[in-house]
């Protein structure tokens, strides 16, 4: 017996979003190092070499990880439950039944807005049971959040 993978992948644009994140995160220290290298004559070689190495690592990560994440992140929402799989070396499956959902949050950061993506977080009454669906198309996320909210509202009791 084993768990089957959830049916849906994140949106194709999530790859570009993750890539941009990697590039931005690497760009900041690389630019700082390069500027310092331009200004400081004696340490120029070392600073520029450092900037180059960092840029190479960042580009490598940006090329590799987003594709990889796109392959391992999966999600699915059925009538009974929300089901999410993440990770590869530490694989994690999270399942929250519809009847126990308490809040549905949709978050769109500035980058996500640029890529028309959204992240939906579903929490239950447990402090440790939150389920996060990343990299969804923003319209799909809005529909999903609305559907989940309706179900939550119609569920009697306080879901504990």
């Amino acid at each position: 017996m084993r768990l089957r993978p959830p049916r849906n992948t994140p949106d194709e644009r999530a790859v570009a979003w993750w890539r941009t994140q990697w590039l931005l995160v690497t760009a900041v220290p690389v630019v700082v190092l390069a500027v310092l290298g331009g200004l400081l004559e004696p340490a120029r070689t070392w600073l520029l070499a450092g900037a180059g190495a960092l840029a190479a690592v960042g580009l490598g990560c940006a090329a590799f990880f987003p594709r990889w994440w796109f392959r391992v992140h999966r999600w699915e929402v059925t009538d009974e439950a929300v089901y999410v799989r993440t990770g590869f070396f530490r694989q994690e499956w999270r399942i929250a039944p519809m009847s126990r959902i308490q809040t549905v949050d949709t978050v769109r950061g500035p980058l996500e807005q640029a890529f028309r993506l959204a992240t939906v977080t579903v929490t239950t009454a447990s402090a440790k049971g939150a389920v996060t669906l990343t990299g969804l198309d923003h319209r799909l996320a809005a529909d999903l959040a609305e559907r989940l909210t309706l179900i939550t509202r119609d569920t009697p009791g306080d879901a504990t």
Binding site: F89, W93, S126, G129
Partner: peptide, 24 residues
């Protein structure tokens, strides 16, 4: 009120699984 199942690479090789029952 939910399940979280975790499996590291080593656990997968050994056929093990860590189950977490979440509750309020």
């Amino acid at each position: 009120i939910g399940w979280t199942l975790r499996q590291s690479y080593v656990q997968r090789r050994a056929g093990l699984l860590t189950l977490t029952a979440t509750t309020a």
